[in-house]
């Protein structure tokens, strides 16, 4: 047998096959275009309106570009707009939302990942029953348990603080997130966990050193779910925040609904955009990992 030097081989160029556009894909394109338009047109109106002067807005022609671009609306929305008696803009709500977000991320991701790990990889008595209860809990509507939860947080003395909002968020999202983590961890090869049992046998050490470093993708998926869920939430913030801890969405609603005098559309639009930007940034920043994370469990290398 003679040795073949691959580098000496002549490179043959094959013409690329022409792809035909099929009828079915045309319909898909039309469908997607319609959805895009349905989202893009209102978004366009909101964005241009937020940069317009109030004078131009009163003319009515909502699709026109601003004649003079101004940040006046954005400034007012950020720091001057009134919510009830206080006029500090949505700024105050922004920081409250951040204060709510961080503990709820820690509570929900922390609880859910450890519980999911335990349920998926350790032999636990009644694991099946526990999983079933979690499954049920994940689908109980919040409104049903709202009043008991208000009583509980009031008893704990945290009602009306951001802690109440954060803890309620954390606890309510925990069942669903646990199921996500559990399903992800179920796909870890059983031999790997067997090896770890023989090597270490410590619940926390295996979690910290072996399992957690493998969970990057799923943690990002869960982070996106939690961040957008907590940030966009209105009802929990309204119910548990009281006057002391109103998240951004609550402030936004107050300003838009309870404005006195002429409706300042540019300020309202800017406030809405300011509130919507953080989750959007999360999507743009982590979206790539989000897709990877979703498909990670589906295809095994």
């Amino acid at each position: 047998m003679s040795n073949i030097d691959i580098s000496q081989r002549e490179f043959k160029h094959y013409p690329e096959k022409k792809r035909k556009i099929k009828g079915s894909s045309i319909i898909t394109f039309i469908f997607l275009a319609m959805i895009a338009v349905a989202v893009m047109i209102p978004l366009y109106v909101i964005i241009v309106t937020s940069f317009k002067t109030l004078d131009q807005i009163t003319l009515g022609r909502i699709f026109d570009l601003p004649t003079t671009w101004t940040f006046e609306g954005w400034n007012k929305a950020w720091s001057e707009v009134c919510s009830g008696m206080t006029c500090n803009g949505v700024k105050a709500g922004f920081f409250t939302s951040i204060k709510i977000l961080i503990p709820s991320i820690i509570i929900s991701v922390g609880l859910a990942s450890v519980t999911g790990y335990a349920l998926a990889l350790w032999k636990i008595k009644w694991a099946g029953g526990f999983l079933f209860v979690l499954f049920i809990c994940a689908f109980v509507p919040f409104q049903v348990i709202m009043i008991p939860l208000v009583l509980i947080t009031a008893k704990l003395g945290i009602y009306g603080t951001f802690w109440a909002v954060a803890i309620v968020h954390g606890v309510l999202s925990m069942p669903f997130l646990t199921l996500i983590f559990r399903n992800f961890y179920k796909d870890i090869p059983p031999e790997l966990i067997s090896a770890a049992m023989m090597d270490s046998g410590s619940f926390w050490r295996i979690f910290g050193e072996i399992i957690l470093p493998m969970s990057g993708n799923i943690i990002i998926v869960v982070l996106i779910l939690v961040i957008t869920g907590v940030w966009n939430d209105f009802l929990i913030g309204l119910t548990f925040g009281g006057f002391g801890a109103q998240p951004m969405t609550v402030i936004l609603a107050n300003t838009v609904i309870t404005g006195t005098g002429a409706v300042r559309y540019n300020v309202d639009m800017a406030a809405a955009l300011l509130t919507a930007i953080p989750p959007l940034l999360v999507y743009f920043g982590l979206g790539k990992f989000f897709v990877q994370g979703i498909s990670a469990g589906a295809i095994k290398g």
Partner: peptide
């Protein structure tokens, strides 16, 4: 417990971390 038996095991899929 597995870790207390004084054994070491090599797995079919290697089970490397």
């Amino acid at each position: 417990d597995p870790k207390d038996r004084g054994l070491a095991m090599v797995f079919q899929s290697y089970a490397l971390y």
